[in-house]
Write a protein that binds this DNA or RNA. Sequence first.
DNA 1: TTTCAGTAAGTGAACATTCACTTACTTTGT
DNA 2: ACAAAGTAAGTGAATGTTCACTTACTGAAA
Lengths: 194, 194
Amino acid sequence: MEITDRQMEIIEAAGKILTTSGINGLTTKNVAAEMKFTESAIYRHFKSKEDIIVAMLHYLAETMDARLSDAVSAASGPEERFKALFRSQYRFFKAEPHFVVAVFSDGLMEQSERINDAILKIMATVMRQLMPIVMEGQQKQVFTNAISAEELLHIVLGTFRLQMFKWRVANFGFDIDRQSENMIAALLTLIKTR
Amino acid sequence: MEITDRQMEIIEAAGKILTTSGINGLTTKNVAAEMKFTESAIYRHFKSKEDIIVAMLHYLAETMDARLSDAVSAASGPEERFKALFRSQYRFFKAEPHFVVAVFSDGLMEQSERINDAILKIMATVMRQLMPIVMEGQQKQVFTNAISAEELLHIVLGTFRLQMFKWRVANFGFDIDRQSENMIAALLTLIKTR
DNA sequence: TTTCAGTAAGTGAACATTCACTTACTTTGT
DNA sequence: ACAAAGTAAGTGAATGTTCACTTACTGAAA
């Protein structure tokens, strides 16, 4: 399951197309054009278009898990870890906006069961990282115990997702940094015990 | 811009396909099959496939605005109105799940500028209805003033959207009633002044 | 000399849309 | 009262386009 340099280039080309033209624009023809070679050459490196997408999502899942682990363990205390996790997410998606399209788009999910699974796996990764932070926060009375950890998680992730959605609809036009700090602060204000 | 009976039937057929087969399944061929006539007959009633989708979204926008107005004005006080609005939304989407696919799917938005606009208009409708409720709640010190009304709105709608997403991914399999009451309660617990 | 990485030119399937034509009603002029 | 004209709503075949993917060939490097 090792990814060659050329495969990585193709994945990046596919990502670039996702950012600029969306899912409908993600065709073998466009990927080939982006790579400056013919459609058929793609099939030297990937068995199918589906495989390109799955490889991209697998790569994302792997790096995300490691990245979030690093970010979280570098901070201490629930509130700091909460911030660290979302800042890491925002920074990553800002650097690679095509993943916003890939992960938060249902058009992709419909395409195939494998792609669907890969996306759900990515979502589960974030939840797995966030859950212990929330639970620790509740245990230490830093976060509210008025609602369950699951509910807190849902609200927080829903808020994040909606922000990514708005950012995408705006064609990544506005400054996500300011908005993200804003939203992290608002969420913390709301969920912290007063 | 009046919709004929036959057009309404086609819109409903398209909706049914959306529910069962998703956006990729929404082809003229499938709509025709659902209507039990040929593809070409569709074009007696709609100029294009895009027009079917746009008509569907326009219809949704119009009925939603009226429905939410009714639901909200039947209740009194911010908290009750908040509940009334979301209960109305849940009840509606439970009765017509295909609109969940239509409104909360980006695959559709990419298809055309007109469709994109129609969906954004629907989202704006909900925000326009919810905003005064939230503001009144804050003014009366029923909802927290720790964060802005915009932020509250964003968090609440993000939570709702994520729930619709989960419901859809689960193929509308779980009981949305229980989950929705749960989520309304959790949100209110969080945003009410303590 | 074989293998790798590319090209050129195709394939069939799916797609939205258009075409000429038919059928069953409804209006209308006489 | 009734034929002629018009219309709404269907059929079936065909359109051009796009799609993912395949096959046969080619140059170059190890």
